[in-house]
Nucleic acid binder design. Structure first.
Lengths: 228, 228
DNA sequence: CTTTTATTTCATAAAATTGTCATAATTAGC
DNA sequence: GCTAATTATGACAATTTTATGAAATAAAAG
């Protein structure tokens, strides 16, 4: 499973070039030529990063960034701005609005890839198919397997996704609704309390080596995955 | 969670413009076109700031400001007045009545945002989800956890909210009623003395590292969170 | 179509939190 | 030191929230 990158760029040739470069480097690329299209692409499955041309007609580049920051589910998607040479002012504004980095046209594919990798590494220190190991609890996204000190743990698909989400977002409370959004996906009509049941099964599954203490109840707020 | 801003402005186009600009900048905007509507919006959840057109028909702009200053719960909500060019007199009166700043029509979105940010920063120096650390007592809104020198402290939801309120409003006495309003929410029918019990529970929870001395009794007035 | 597996819902048990009260302790004024 | 006012504290019953097991549905695999 590779990372998805959304390219927002009005000039078709540049867009195609970016698309090509990204795919060469093992990313999945989606494209949008204007504000409208960009917003439509900002839904499930959410891109892992947005490459955003600042100079969209009508100045809508910055609007997209702002819109993303407003919504809970897109707020944390990293943004790399593409700016024209010398538009120093834009860079400043961009970083203010919440862009994570920028590249200046013209740029080399090499530079672009380096920046993308850097941002992704910073935002999601856990690579998509790297084993996540938290206190001996190992989750391997590639083999889709969870182990605790070498013995495999058995759990259902939902519990796996839930654990995966938790392990990639530790030390943070999530309400039942947020968990439904992130693990089940938006616009699913599922009872809040269903989360409890899956938490229960997840705990049971990882309890053999005592890891169930990592899944913590935060009364009145939700659940948290934490080593403390 | 973003900050809420109430816009009080009778001219619809300006109102919409303000609304747009604020939302672009990541704020939640509510609107009111007249005195009546403004008062109705001044309830829970309270806005974090009010953007108030001084020139409402019937001079009701100033009335709204006065009314806000009369009521305990709205008294501390910052107000930015919108005045017409050259109405120097208004500015003076506005600041007298308790406005925190003003912008003069016509103004640029940039200027407006700068003033809003400045006022909010002054009034609420603590960002919404930043760890608050007072003398080694740390409260992390994100993970929803309180720690004293690395060890997590255990407390109920109400104690957590109470502590959070205290830590964001230190060095200031609050009566039991005020605490009920701010921590429990208005229109809850709860005995005054109940606050004592929760203060007690909070103190107990944070007493392990001696932090209970931060929660101080002000005899005859209420309680205060203070490092002195 | 049947069997198996996974998911959701529901009912109930268990646990934690909450507000109130009664009583003890403290404080301030005399 | 004495009294009155105010605050602290412990206990408890009611309520709310979470945990859990089991049954009903839905989905996937044979």
């Amino acid at each position: 499973m590779s990372r998805r990158i959304l390219i927002v760029e009005d000039e078709a040739p540049i867009r195609d070039m970016l698309c090509f470069v990204l795919e060469q480097n093992g990313y999945q690329a989606s494209v949008a030529g204007d504000f409208e299209a960009a917003i439509n692409q900002l839904v499930e499955p959410y891109p892992d990063l947005v490459l955003l041309d600042w100079m969209l007609p009508g100045g809508s580049g910055i609007q997209i960034a702002k819109k993303m920051k407003q919504h809970e589910l897109t707020r944390n998607i990293p943004i790399i701005m593409i700016t024209a040479r010398g538009e120093e002012e834009d860079k400043v504004r961009g970083l203010e609005v919440g862009a994570d980095d920028y590249v200046t046209k013209p740029f080399s594919p090499k530079e672009l890839m380096a920046r993308i990798k850097a941002v992704i590494r910073r935002v999601a220190p856990t690579s998509l198919d790297e084993v996540i190991d938290i206190q001996g609890l190992k989750l391997d996204p590639v083999s889709h397997r969870v182990t605790a000190s070498e013995n495999p743990l058995d759990m259902g698909p939902t519990e796996f996704r839930l654990l995966h989400f938790f392990m990639t977002h530790p030390e943070r409370v999530y309400s039942r609704e947020q968990l439904l959004d992130h693990v089940w996906g938006t616009n699913v009509y599922v009872e809040d309390r269903t989360v409890d049941v899956h938490i229960r099964r997840l705990r049971k599954a990882i309890s053999v080596a005592g890891h169930d203490r990592l899944v913590q109840t935060v009364r009145g707020s939700g659940y948290r995955f934490s080593v403390k």
